[in-house]
Amino acid sequence: MRNQFAEAIVERSANHDMVFLTGDLGFMALESVQEALGSRFVNAGVAEQNMISVAAGLSYTGLDVWAYSIAPFCYARPFEQIRNDIALHNLPVTLVGNGGGYGYGVMGPTHHAIEDYGVLCTLPNMKVCVPVFDEDLGGAVQWIKSDKSPSYLRLGRGEKPDGYTPPAFAPWRQLCAGQGPVIVAVGPLAGGYLDRVQNLPEHERPNLWAACVLPIKRALPPRVFVEQLGASTKLIVAEEHVQTGGFGADLLMWLTSEHIGVQDFVHMFAQSHSYDAYGSQTYLRQKSGLDAQTLMQHLTDT
């Protein structure tokens, strides 16, 4: 998604008074942004706390500010700077975290971001976008800047079936329909699941939804989703994020507040920051039970 993100930023920079900060990252990805922005592309060095507060200061002067790093370096290291300097002042800085979830795979848990949006959604005014497909980035950038509040953009690796054309970016999208359970997958997981379920017979095929916006109050579930829940016995939520503070918890809270019952709720989530061995994102998803094979088992379990 980095390349598509860079394209979206370059396009936006033509019409906006933009500053792009990076924490010394972006090789083979952000060169086009650097070229487009010139002196407004600022490598803030390996100093993320300073980068975030500088971003707040720049935003205070009215500039359109983006701050980019590997995801945990972007939200975990400078958390207090995000809280005090950006969120508390409702400044429309966008934090861009690359490699969300287990995206950095075998690089290890210091580089993983499986509590990122849960932590950030505890902050005032913060909104989060987790694009599903590479094609989402233009729409995601527009959505993020649709109001003047702080935001976090979690970049991952777009996954979709061969030859598939994703629907246009939207906070909630139904990727396939059937008579099976209702699934909501957050971010790129949805594209990977689609490949596995779209050709199932209709009576087995789930209603697969891709969600990409948090907290849920920022984009409530569409009516048709609620109707499908009423006709189904099972809701499965999958997210590459720890259980606490994630999309699943937020969705359940909303459903409860709306008096919408769910007979059988399955939550697929990032089970651990570390396992007995390191491995790729695919390996870690399997260890967490986030892989498509495990999803298939949940679909058929009674």
Partner: peptide
Amino acid sequence: SLAAGIAL
């Protein structure tokens, strides 16, 4: 840092 951001 905030002051540096405003100055920049």
